[in-house]
Simulated scan of single mutants.
Amino acid sequence: MKKLTIKEINAELSSITEETDPFIIALEQDERAGAQKALNKWRKFQLQQTELLRKYKEMSVFEEQAELAGAHRIAGVDEVGRGPLAGPVMAAAVILDPDKPIFGLDDSKKLSDKKKNELYDQIMTKAIAVSSAIIEADEIDRINIYQASKRAMEKAVEQLSIPADYLLIDAMTIGNNLPQEKLIKGDARSVSIAAASIVAKVERDRLMEEYGQKYPGYGFEKNAGYGTKQHLEGLDHYGVTPIHRMTFSPVQSRL
């Protein structure tokens, strides 16, 4: 094989996906450290891609079963924000496009902020339909957090620009006439629910960052409304805000 520069080798490797490619076989004979480093990096990347594909297929089982039963527009539904002392509960509904797979989807709690935002952008670009809905703190106080979470999910499904004909929901059933399946820990088992969990998490975090600017001193931009030390100290020093959940014990005790 003609001795290519390391830059040229990396460029060539970027278009190769098979270990049996003649270029890979020839590159194995290149004794230069840089060439072997490039080859090892390529192999590591291929292993990562294989694992991403395996996991995507594993997390697509429930979608495939729904398709076999006749569903065409399967929406994953999830919510975030049950535990915080401030801010809304947010839900999202996502209908993924089977022809545009998004690799790396997972429970949003397992992903870094950078990865969540990267996947969020892909979801918004590739999905057939995406919607989100919030229930504000005052309504949470009025109907309780469980009912508020359920209502947020219902609103997210209702607001899809393309109606769903089947729902995969994380650990809950909701009140509509659509066929649906409740999956415990669904955000780690279904690509559609995982996508919904990422959309809800990213959008709620961004909203809480805005509240952090509007109500400084509580750390909303960092804690998303959860009861961290900074948040509790803010409550003691500044009192409650209009976005606090008055029926939640740490807030109620400071009224």
Rank of each mutant, 00 (worst) to 15 (best):
T228A: 09
D236F: 09
R204H: 08
A156Y: 01
P163G: 00
P242G: 07
Q180P: 05
A188Y: 05
R189I: 02
A195N: 07
I243M: 03
I193E: 01
S249D: 10
N177P: 06
M246Q: 15
Q180G: 08
R206H: 12
P216Q: 00
A164R: 07
S149C: 13
L207T: 05
P216N: 11
R189G: 08
D236N: 14
Y215D: 03
G227M: 06
E203F: 07
M153K: 06
I169F: 11
I169S: 02
K229N: 06
T173L: 13
L178W: 00
L167Y: 01
N176F: 05
A196P: 07
E210T: 12
L207R: 09
Q213D: 14
P216W: 11
N223D: 10
Y215M: 09
Q180N: 01
K182I: 00
V191E: 02
H237L: 15
G239W: 10
R151M: 11
S197M: 03
Q180E: 00
K201T: 02
Q230M: 09
D236E: 07
E203N: 11
K182C: 13
F248K: 12
Q213L: 13
D165H: 10
E154Y: 06
A188M: 07
A195E: 06
L167G: 05
H244S: 15
K182H: 10
Y218L: 06
A195F: 05
M208S: 04
E210Q: 09
R204T: 07
Y166M: 07
G175T: 10
K185Y: 08
L167W: 05
G227T: 04
V202M: 05
V157L: 06
G212C: 13
D165C: 12
S249T: 09
L207P: 02
Y215P: 03
G186I: 03
L232K: 11
V240T: 15
A152Y: 01
A196G: 14
G227R: 03
G219S: 08
Q213V: 06
I169H: 08
G186S: 13
S249A: 13
G225C: 13
V240I: 15
V199C: 07
G217H: 00
A152R: 01
A224N: 01
L167Q: 04
D170N: 15
H237I: 14
I162R: 11
V199R: 02
V202A: 03
L168Y: 00
F248I: 03
Q230I: 00
A200Q: 07
R206E: 11
A171Q: 12
S161C: 06
N223P: 10
Y226R: 04
Q213S: 11
D236G: 06
G227C: 09
E233Y: 10
I169A: 07
L183H: 04
A148R: 02
V157K: 03
M246N: 15
E154F: 10
T241Y: 07
N177S: 14
T173D: 10
V157M: 04
D236W: 09
A148G: 10
Y218N: 04
R151P: 12
L160D: 09
H231L: 07
E203C: 14
S197I: 02
L235K: 01
A171W: 10
L167I: 06
I243L: 05
A156W: 00
A152W: 01
I243G: 03
A148N: 08
K185L: 11
E221D: 05
K182V: 06
G219E: 04
S190D: 11
Y211H: 08
Y238P: 12
E203Q: 14
Y218Q: 01
A164P: 07
T241S: 15
I198A: 03
A194H: 03
T247A: 14
G212K: 12
I243V: 13
G219P: 08
